[in-house]
Design a protein around this nucleic acid. Structure first.
Length: 322
DNA sequence: CATCAGGGCCCTG
DNA sequence: CAGGGCCCTGAT
């Protein structure tokens, strides 16, 4: 694995739409842990592929919920110059900083379940720190595996295709470009113990080296079309497409499928039952929250996982297979 | 030692 | 539309 020491080159300020919750946006305790980012209260770091460039990003919370400001430091081999504005826009998209979710805020005030959660997390955004391609890799290693094994697979991939960047006292793994996967071939993937996913990972890399899947174009598509397009990716089925639409593309109202462990979690939260029929749950979400339903579910979900960090929740521990 | 399911998806019948 | 097979691991 190649190591790079990145020097600070530039800095700028981001001004999210208020209200904005820094910690709730940059730390998602329910998310899969990966070595390419780090978080402390009010501080956040990650490695980032920007075109062919490898960057280190440091963000600090220098505002308030009502008057949010984020100080961003950019580390790299050389200054971005003109490219800086593009980076700024990319960060705004990944962390949904320009989103107006006042409609959701109003809804949450009126909802029994959401109101207490909203008091803790008002201004939290949907966030994914990776590109679409990178997220797809994560979604693929998550399939049909326990969390421990998924971590193992991604680590193997970081070690073989990725790099390591050091900046601002942090040492983080960094993603690769899809071309590296193709260059080293499927046999290498097999060696990395990703199992039957090797073919998927290869074909996904192929889809992203060309102009076949351009994230910026996809972002503008209507949700229906976007969903159909994403399902064309080899290895993307009902579970992954749901994650992609909501997390990467911020489609707050999409939820047509829940994996068994998520269904159980939402069954507890909404009905205080161990598990209900999926259709019943989806209908309830639609009725209560309509076009904000997945965002609402996300608030409940993250709040639960934050609670879990403070004190273990027995029924939840059983559902999270490590 | 064997068997099995795990934060799915593809492909076949 | 249901169900077997797929890679590999750790749990039993």
């Amino acid at each position: 694995m190649k190591h790079y020491y990145l020097k600070q080159q530039e800095s700028f300020t981001l001004r999210p739409v208020q209200p904005f919750h820094f910690d709730g946006t940059f730390c998602k305790p329910s998310h899969f842990p990966s070595r390419d980012r780090a978080f402390e209260k009010g501080m956040y770091w990650q490695s980032l592929r920007f075109g062919r460039r490898l960057l280190g990003i440091e963000m600090s919370d220098v505002g308030t919920v009502a008057s949010p400001r984020i100080e961003v430091k950019v580390f790299g081999a050389s200054p971005l110059g003109q490219g800086l504005n593009g980076l700024k826009k990319e960060l705004e998209k990944r962390f949904d900083l320009r989103a107006d979710i006042s409609g959701f805020d109003a809804l949450a005030e009126r909802d029994q379940l959401l109101r207490p959660v909203q008091e803790r997390w008002k201004g939290m955004r949907v966030s994914v720190h990776t590109s679409l391609y990178e997220f797809l890799v994560v979604a693929t290693v998550l399939q049909n595996a326990t969390v421990r094994r998924s971590v193992q697979m991604l680590d193997n991939m970081f070690n073989n295709y990725g790099s390591c960047v050091a900046f601002s006292d942090k040492k983080l793994a960094a993603f690769w470009l899809p071309a590296s996967i193709i260059r080293k071939g499927e046999s290498r993937l097999r060696e990395l113990k990703v199992g039957y996913r090797s073919n998927m990972l290869l074909r996904q890399a192929q889809a992203f080296v060309g102009a076949e899947f351009r994230e910026d174009d996809l972002r503008r598509m209507a949700t229906r079309d976007l969903k159909a397009r994403l399902l064309q990716l080899y290895g993307v089925g009902p579970a992954s497409v749901g994650y992609l639409l909501f997390e990467v593309f911020k489609r707050y109202g999409v939820c047509d499928y829940l994996s068994p462990w998520e269904l159980k979690i939402y069954s507890r939260l909404l009905f205080d039952e161990e598990v209900v029929k999926m259709e019943r749950l989806l209908d309830e979400m639609e009725m209560r929250w309509g076009r904000w339903k997945m965002l609402a579910a996300h608030y409940l979900f993250e709040d639960l996982f934050w609670q879990r960090q403070r004190s273990k929740i027995p029924w939840l521990e059983e559902l999270i297979r490590l």
